[in-house]
Simulated assay, not measured.
Amino acid sequence: MPRSHATLPRLFVPHDLAPAAELTLDKEQSLYLAAVLRKSVGDEVVLFNGRDGAWLCRLTSDSKKSVALAVTEQIAPQTEGADLWYGFAPLKNERLDYVVQKAVEMGAGTIQPVMTQFTQVHRLKTDRLHSNAIEAAEQCEVLSVPTIAPEITLERLLADWPQAQGARKLIFADEAEASSSPVDTLEAIRGAPVGLLIGPEGGFSQSEREKLRALPFVVPISLGPRILRADTAAVAAMAVIQAIIGDWR
């Protein structure tokens, strides 16, 4: 996005975006623009929908209940959705919000809660996960909002994982793996689609670790000599993956 537009508010909307289109925001977004940001008729904002790129829009009505806008020009083309699958054992609210937001920033294309033996949170608010993903995309100029996949048990995830030739590898951050650099391990799977699995605060159980390590599509890696919190491990692992075999190269 041009830097001249970087300071404008960015909002995710469900509407189709095209030249000369007109649209009305919902009550929550209208209140945010008109009352919180004090935007008025003639002011500009950036809208995106995950399909049509980013568009410059101008307010034509500043009602706090229903802000109306006219779409003026596209300022960034739509980007392809990221391919990285990210699975994680749900954490408590604030840390759960954090890992979803960071996964969006780090380029995850699909985010999926995975229930493990030591998972402490078993009731998830899917709407909250979606809201956090959208908020992160709005703040970080991400045009493709990741898919929030339904929660799944680790057992079902592994049973359903595609194993055909060339299928996705599952990178498993194993806290019990001997401390070592993950560079060579990741270089060996360059070119294959990948997923990342991060366990709960108490780690994976011994039986879960044994099952994971026995599967041919699972790739265990170490994240160094220190014990990391689950949310820290997620960011560290995604950074390593993107730097070595991902879209940072």
Rank of each mutant, 00 (worst) to 15 (best):
R168C: 10
V104L: 08
G246S: 08
V121G: 05
Q206S: 14
I227H: 08
C140S: 14
P14A: 08
G53A: 13
L124E: 06
P225F: 03
S180D: 13
S205D: 05
V99W: 00
L196V: 05
V218S: 10
K125N: 13
S180W: 11
V218E: 04
K65Q: 15
I221A: 14
F217M: 13
Y86E: 10
W85M: 11
V71D: 03
C57M: 09
E141I: 06
R209A: 13
D83F: 05
K39G: 12
E105L: 10
A159E: 13
T110P: 02
L23Q: 09
A21W: 00
L157E: 02
V45I: 15
L84H: 10
I148L: 14
Q139Y: 11
Q242W: 08
G109R: 02
P182T: 12
L228P: 07
G199N: 14
I227Y: 04
L96N: 12
A214T: 14
I134N: 00
L11C: 00
V13S: 02
L143C: 11
G199V: 11
L17P: 05
T116C: 14
F48A: 02
L212S: 08
G195S: 03
P225T: 13
Q163G: 09
K39W: 06
K39E: 14
M106T: 01
T79P: 12
T24N: 02
I245N: 03
R3W: 03
V194P: 02
Q117F: 06
Q242H: 05
S205V: 15
V121Q: 08
I148A: 04
R156Q: 12
A70V: 02
P193T: 13
E105K: 06
W248I: 04
I244H: 04
V142M: 11
G195E: 08
F204R: 11
V46P: 00
N132P: 07
R95A: 12
T153I: 06
V183S: 04
S207Y: 13
A70I: 01
R38G: 09
E73M: 02
L33Q: 06
S63I: 11
Q29W: 04
P19M: 00
L69P: 00
Q206M: 12
T116W: 00
V114I: 14
L96Q: 13
F172V: 06
Q78R: 15
S222R: 09
N93P: 09
D26G: 15
F48C: 01
W55P: 00
Y86V: 15
E177K: 12
A188N: 14
L31P: 06
A236C: 14
V145A: 09
D16L: 06
S181H: 10
T7L: 10
Q206E: 15
S61E: 14
R10V: 00
T7E: 09
I134F: 02
A164P: 01
L47Y: 01
M106W: 03
F172N: 05
A234Q: 13
P14T: 10
T119D: 01
L158E: 03
E135P: 03
G109H: 02
V104M: 08
Q163C: 14
V219R: 11
V41L: 13
Q74H: 06
T232P: 13
